[in-house]
Each structure stands twice: as structure tokens, then as C-alpha cells.
Design a binder for these strands. Structure first.
Lengths: 147, 147
DNA sequence: TTATTACCGGATGATTTTGTCCGGTATCTG
DNA sequence: CAGATACCGGACAAAATCATCCGGTAATAA
């Protein structure tokens, strides 16, 4: 569905959001990677993308780390995170890989996939990181395996 | 959404199906790759997977090529093609990459993605290659770009 | 100011996916 | 039977993705 980078990015963003909403405190890379079950260095790369896109805030130095501002918690959607990391291929590309697939020249699956893609876009558009973070905070969702 | 291999495989299967239904004639690899806009040698690999899975029939030698039997035209679904090439990751895996994501320990997106995945499975399960081939035959669907 | 902390950025490497090449083999035609 | 055709299968190569390493830099704390 999404790339590994995007999976890590979403999980990391939600974890950062949870900690930010919880106590306003910043979380370090090591902490994030541990809690989310992702490779540390690779996660750093992904987070840099999110920071550059303005979806996550970072602070250098001691007591530094990553955080989501109240505004980011409220406004950043899943869709923005996915777009920043994976681009729009999954969200708008043709299911059969045709570069110009439209009502004018549809692939044989065009109309079958329209509602699926619409629903996917809807889910990504209507869920904020802050909302998902709340779900994790309430024990209604998990970001890694617990064995 | 799907891998390149899978995109090529679906397009190729539909084209073979269209020619088979049309006149029962077999189509060669070169012909398929041209009509579907895919790399020839790579498409051969993908088609071999479909032949081994029993979803497409191949005949060697002169006048040989690929074909779909009437039974294959009637029964082979898109879902079978996708499973043969990409496996079940897209159809059942967790959107956030958790290896054990279930109602018992759901990711924060688990319930949001359930209906999407259900709908995707439904579309793949209820459409046969033969049906899609008919759509292409009737000019209601295209398998490559026409510029 | 100085040392430490922790993100930043580029270089590098491993793995998977994508794509090519070519000899082998089955099969049809003459 | 001989020759040509076209799929089969393995080896190989290129590109994208996934992942690591390490020095640089900004910021904090003593």
C-alpha cells in the first residue's frame, strides 16, 4: 500500500503527536524508533522530509527533538504526510499504470477503482495526526507489535 | 497500488483474453508487449508466472503463443492474477506495516482501512479477465496510451 | 566559553524490483 | 526428418528502495 518509508513516517508522526499532546514534550530520534519499531537512521531521513514539508517541528541541541505544535496537531492530515513521502501516485495514479487514464481514455478498471480511490482519499483527508495520536493515547490503537 | 509486474500482467492477460474471445487465436509475446505497452522480456517473465499458476495457457512452436481457454475466460478473476504476481500483501497486509495488526491489537488506521480493503477485494473478486476483455473489445477500455 | 546533546546532510552499501540476454526445448511446417 | 518458430529458464545488469555511517552544525547547560 504505502512504502516502508511512508509507514515509518506515519507511525513516527503519530507517536510524536501523542507525546506532544500528552505533555508538550519533545521526543528524540532514538525514542521514536524504539517506540515505533523502525530503523533509527532511516527514520531520521523520513522525519527530515516531514520537517522540510512543515508537518513536523524539530529542535536541535540538548532537550531537543521532534514535536508537533498545537496547530500541527490540529491541522496536519494523514494525506499530507503520505503526499510528502510517497507523492501522489497511490492517490491519483491509474491502477494499471497508464500515464493518461481518464474518462476520455479509461483503463478497463477505471470506473471500478474510482470509488475505492475516493474512499482512500477521504480517509486520508479527514484524519489528522492529532486525532490518531489520541486514539493511541487511549489504548485504542498501537504503533508496534507487543509480543 | 500494484507492482509494475502486476500492472503488466493484468494488461497482458486482458489483451490475451480479448484476442482469445474474439477469434480463439493465440497471440505472441511480441504482439502482447506492443499492444500493452510493456517491456517484452519482462512481460515474458510475468506471463510465465501466470502460466504456472494455471491462469493463462501457452503453446510452444510455430503458430504458438498465449491464449485463454473458454473456461479461463469465464472463471479467472483479477484477484487470482494479482495474488499470483504480487501475493496477498496489498489485499490483507496492515496499512502501517504492522505484522500483527488485528482487532486484538489494531493500528490506529485499522478500522478506517477495513472498508477500503473490503471494497478492493470485492472488485478484484467479482471481475473476470473475460469480462474486462469484453470491455476492451467494445472500445470501453484501453490497455495502453494512444497519442 | 566550553562541552555535550541531538538533529542535519551527504556518502555509501544492501536488498528488492525492474529489465535484458541468450541458450534450451517443445512444436509445427514442409 | 530438417528447419524454423516461439515459449522456457537461468544468468546477468540497471534502477529504485531500504538502510547505515559519520562528520557538521545548532542549541542548550554548566
Amino acid at each position: 500500500m504505502f512504502s516502508k518509508a511512508c509507514e515509518y513516517g506515519i507511525r513516527a508522526a503519530i507517536y510524536i503527536g501523542q507525546q506532544s499532546a500528552d505533555s508538550g514534550r519533545r521526543v528524540g530520534l532514538r525514542d521514536i524508533a524504539t517506540e515505533v519499531g523502525s530503523p533509527e537512521a532511516f527514520t531520521a531521513k523520513v522525519l527530515q522530509q516531514l520537517v522540510r514539508a512543515g508537518l513536523v517541528t524539530s529542535v536541535k541541541g540538548p532537550t531537543g527533538g521532534f514535536t508537533l505544535t498545537p496547530e500541527q496537531l490540529r491541522t496536519v492530515t494523514l494525506r499530507q504526510v503520505v503526499l510528502a513521502i510517497d507523492g501522489g501516485q497511490m492517490l491519483q495514479g491509474c491502477a494499471l499504470g497508464l500515464t493518461q487514464c481518464s474518462a476520455k481514455q479509461p483503463c478497463p478498471l477505471h470506473y471500478q477503482f474510482l470509488p475505492i480511490r475516493d474512499q482512500l482519499n477521504e480517509v486520508l483527508r479527514t484524519h489528522t495526526i492529532g486525532e490518531l495520536a489520541g486514539k493511541v493515547h487511549d489504548g485504542l490503537g498501537f504503533l508496534r507489535q507487543f509480543s
